[in-house]
Simulated scan of single mutants.
Amino acid sequence: MRVAALVLLLPPAARAETTIRIATYAAPLSRDGPGLLLRDILSGEDPQITAILGVIDHVAPDVLVLTDIDYDAGGAALAALSDRLQHPYPYRFTAAPNAGRQTGLDVDGNGRTGEARDALGYGRFFGDGGMAVLSRYPIDATKVRDLTPTLWRDVPGAVLPTLDGAPFPSQQVLDVLPVSSASHWIVPVEIGGVTLSLLAFSATSPVFDGPEDFNGLRNRDELRLWEAVLDGAMGPVPERPILIGNANVEPFDGDGLRDGIAEVLARPDLQDPAPRSEGGEQAANPDHHGDPALDTADWSDDGPGNLRVSYVLPARALTVVDAGVFWPAPDDPAAGLLGDDQRAAGPHHLVWVDLRQPAP
């Protein structure tokens, strides 16, 4: 077993006091309608939620970004989820996403309105598959910078979709559509007198479109928004930034504009801890080019195969102590948390990075 796997078994109290575990998890905490997630959490009988809770308890992040959790205005589902953990999180943050917020326009160009694809971001209802942050350290919600409303056309270097030389689906849509399909937040977390800034987001899938490449271009520009933030083109550069969330694209395999994430990974102001797992390595797709140990999603039964789509990319100035993906090998005792088929908690795996607490 790798050293990373051994460290992963340690609860928060057993880790070094100066180490902070930052994680992101695209856990499938979205349901078919509003209120159903809260119902399933409170019931205590949903096997998928039980598996997700087991993974979070096992990895025990100090700060966790969830990128597929239904939003409700009171944060009731998020609070209920936290309360079911062995060690509930004292600090929580969520805000309204673009997902499911209807536009009244034909966003996908199929001649109809009011469908899931006609929202500001894909969603069957308002808040479908939103985002949230759980933390053991204080979050000052008054200092959160919410870039979720940023118009796609206003992103520096944005490439808007066209079809046969005309704006797609229409100029009217492109005049009001934000680049963020769910949420883009800059969340300050205060740790021992030092601020870490989570650049948290959940990008659209780069597929399910046509020759105009609407989703592929939007996915690319959701990353380009963060590049603009880090370059100082969207206001002050955040303190000690950590780019974190589900980019839904990787640099070697799968669909999407791979150059976007490749450029982000190559930025000199960020570092890639390259979190790995034994499970991903053993489940390698023989036709893929990337390192399978870095994969974070298991779509081996259908779709594009296993891909690296979730990332935790700390600022270069921060010190990385360890990193990993919770994807145990089948013979690892921890694999039982993921069920007999290793997928009880969904296709995505939790990604974590341990940082040395920076001095004030």
Score class of each variant (00 low, 15 high):
R258V: 04
G232Q: 04
F201D: 10
D221W: 09
E212M: 06
D253T: 12
L225S: 01
L294C: 08
G279R: 08
L243N: 01
L294D: 07
D213C: 06
D272F: 06
R267I: 09
A247E: 10
G279V: 12
D231N: 08
V249G: 02
V264A: 10
M234R: 11
V237L: 03
D231M: 00
L243R: 01
N219R: 00
S202H: 15
E250W: 08
F214Y: 11
P241W: 04
F208S: 10
R276K: 14
R220E: 07
L217S: 02
N219H: 02
G256R: 03
P275I: 06
A274G: 03
N219L: 02
N248E: 13
S202G: 12
L265Q: 06
L243E: 02
G279D: 11
A228P: 11
L196T: 03
S202R: 15
P236A: 11
H289E: 14
F214V: 07
E278W: 06
Q271G: 02
L257N: 10
G256E: 06
R276Y: 11
L217I: 05
D272G: 06
I242T: 01
D287E: 15
A200W: 01
N215A: 04
L243C: 05
H289R: 15
M234T: 00
D291C: 09
G245S: 00
G245C: 00
M234L: 15
D255H: 13
G280M: 00
L199G: 03
L198N: 00
F252H: 14
E250F: 09
E250N: 13
G290Y: 04
I242P: 01
A228D: 06
R220K: 08
V249A: 09
D287T: 15
A274E: 13
N219F: 00
A247I: 10
P251D: 15
D253K: 08
L199K: 02
A266C: 10
L270D: 04
R258G: 08
L230Y: 05
F252I: 00
Q271E: 07
G216D: 03
G216C: 04
A293S: 15
I261M: 08
A200M: 02
V264Q: 07
L294N: 06
E278N: 05
F201G: 11
